[in-house]
Simulated assay, not measured.
Amino acid sequence: MSNSIVLNERSSQQSGSQIRELRTSGRIPATVYGKDIGSVSVMVEEKSFLATIKENPRAILMADIPTKGKKPVTIQHIQKDPITRKILHIDFHQLNMNVAMDTKVTIHFSGEPIGVYEGGVMQVELYEVDVRCMPDDLLSAFEVDITKIGIGEHLLVSDLEFHKGVEVLTDPTAVVIKVSPAIEAELEDESAVATPVVPEVDKPTA
């Protein structure tokens, strides 16, 4: 938990024009929620925030709130403009470092499956898994060596070896990645495109 970020307080009664002015000046309005502090309206420098979360958006941040002190937080929600994708607002959640948390961990795939060199097609089914752990045990990402996966073989969630203290909540039988024969993969793609979505229609009552 080495990342720190400064959250300066702002009035919770700001008007729409004041919020727009805030964003124009390179700052993002945000709110911190927590058992100890309730709800606190804050703002954060956009450049600083983006640089802090670049490597791991789910990392635990040490938020420095001038009137509240330093609090461990995670990002609960980021609201973005649907067109420009610019960040409009951020919700932070204060953590209790003594209580387990539910979150997601991104899977990073290392190497190239041997099955791909043999003519197979790699298909990734999951890019992240749900886990439960203490905040200090939170992983930024989970590295998986996929070089030994051959044609017709796959890797399940149950095959992922997390360190002690991390409970995986995702279905252990779920496929993470597989290597299919080229023809089979093409048929799966064609089936996904060709299968029409039929809307449900209520039957008329007599």
Rank of each mutant, 00 (worst) to 15 (best):
D130V: 09
F109H: 00
Y127H: 12
S110K: 07
G152V: 02
S110C: 01
G120A: 03
V144F: 05
L169S: 11
F162I: 06
V116C: 00
K178H: 15
L95H: 01
F162L: 11
H163P: 10
P113R: 08
E153Y: 03
Q123R: 10
D136H: 14
L169T: 13
V131E: 03
L160C: 06
Y117F: 13
P113A: 00
T173F: 13
A174G: 08
G152F: 10
L169A: 12
N98W: 04
Q94K: 13
F92C: 13
Y117G: 14
V99W: 01
L155T: 04
D137H: 12
M122V: 05
F92I: 03
L139Y: 08
V131F: 04
T170M: 09
T103D: 05
S140I: 06
E143Q: 07
I114Y: 05
H154M: 14
L155E: 09
I151Q: 02
V121C: 03
D130K: 07
D145E: 09
P135W: 02
V124W: 01
D102Q: 08
V116T: 02
S110H: 05
M134A: 13
T106Y: 06
T147E: 06
H163G: 12
H108A: 07
E153K: 11
H163S: 07
V121Y: 05
R132C: 10
E112G: 00
V116Q: 06
E125H: 10
N96V: 01
V105M: 03
H108D: 09
P113K: 00
N96G: 02
D130A: 14
E125P: 00
E118V: 00
D130L: 05
V131Y: 07
D136K: 12
E161F: 01
V131A: 07
C133W: 02
D91Q: 09
D136Y: 07
A100M: 07
V124G: 03
A141I: 10
S110I: 14
L138D: 05
L138M: 11
S158E: 15
Y127A: 08
V176S: 12
E153G: 09
K148C: 04
S180Q: 11
N98A: 06
A174P: 13
G111P: 00
E112S: 06
V175W: 04
I146K: 12
T173K: 11
I146D: 14
D159C: 05
P135Y: 13
L160I: 13
T103L: 05
T147A: 15
E125F: 08
L169W: 10
V176E: 10
I149H: 08
M101L: 09
V116H: 01
G150N: 15
H93K: 10
V157R: 15
G150F: 12
K148N: 12
I177F: 09
V144N: 04
G111M: 03
F162H: 11
D171L: 06
V175Q: 14
L160P: 02
M97P: 01
E118R: 09
L138F: 13
R132S: 12
A141P: 01
V121A: 15
S180W: 11
C133A: 09
D130P: 02
E128C: 03
